[in-house]
Amino acid sequence: MFKDLDPILHSQLRLAVMSLLIGVKEAEFTFIKDKTGSTAGNLSVQITKLKEAGYVEVIKQFKDNYPQTICKITAEGITAFETYVKALQSYLPK
């Protein structure tokens, strides 16, 4: 029986962001941008979608007079990620 894949996570860049954040306490926007190789604009749009879904917490602050965006995965995000991975497993040949 195939399970439905969470449409929020079943997108390359959003899944990449979540996979990065699941392993760290928090990460700056620039770190995520470097690791995913995405453009700032696209990444910003995808992070906003994750934030709206409640999967990611976004903290905006200033560092040395420059704006800094920090992202961290929420408890809801961790649960969604785990559910997504379990659902993926049902698609794989046994």
Binding site: Q12, A16, S19, L20, Y84
Partner: peptide, 8 residues
């Protein structure tokens, strides 16, 4: 998806 998760 799994490959992407693993690599990230």
């Amino acid at each position: 998806s799994l490959n992407l998760i693993e690599s990230m």
